[in-house]
Amino acid sequence: MESALTTAEPTHLAHQFDSLEQQQQTATLGMWFFLAQEILFFGGLFMTYLLYRWRDPQAFQAGSYTLDIRFGMTNTLVLIASSFTMAMAVRSAQTDRIKALVRYLVATGFFGVTFLCIKYVEYSDKWHHHHVPGPLFHFAGPMGQRAEVFFSMYFAMTGMHALHMIIGLGLLIWLLSGALRGRYSARYYNPIECFGLYWHFVDIIWIFLFPLFYLIGRHYHGVA
């Protein structure tokens, strides 16, 4: 028998791996393959954005001008803070500080919820101004209905991003309950590490969404 099988904690080492190290590297690699797929999944949305903005750049500038840059920038900083606390959570697991792990996971969840609350305020503001695409859509100024495509992209892309955040928060609760029951240690923290990669990926998507939606119309002068 392999000595690793007898010395490692049997509950954490799946039978197809020789060692915890091999198991961890395999899990991390699998997570990166998943993220590569996610890049192409969001890539389809970025492709559509590129195409429609190339087709009618003025409508995109006019639409962007109506977004509140203060909300956008605050949310970017909130997500960066949540990425930092997530990186610290992984580090706490690596160094076997489980109380700190719990604290950093809670902080990450707090920033994630803050982001979604700000997004909710923005969405309801768009709803009240009839900027949601559909039969009630109305956009004042020379662009008129041409701006609708900008808001379609805005809701599709920020909505898909927000859905990823909501799924992430669900996973975070699952990790938190595991951490509170002593499931993770410096020997075994694969789920924490892989979730961290997912969370940072979602942060990166927002790093591109913020300028592409909030920053392209700042010096728009209202004329096509």
């Binding site: 915890l20 190290e21 961890q24 690596q94 160094t95 410096a186 020997r187």
Partner: peptide
């Protein structure tokens, strides 16, 4: 709890 990091990950 063995003190050496088993993951081989850089901290």
């Amino acid at each position: 709890a063995s003190p050496e990091p088993t993951s081989g990950h850089h901290i």
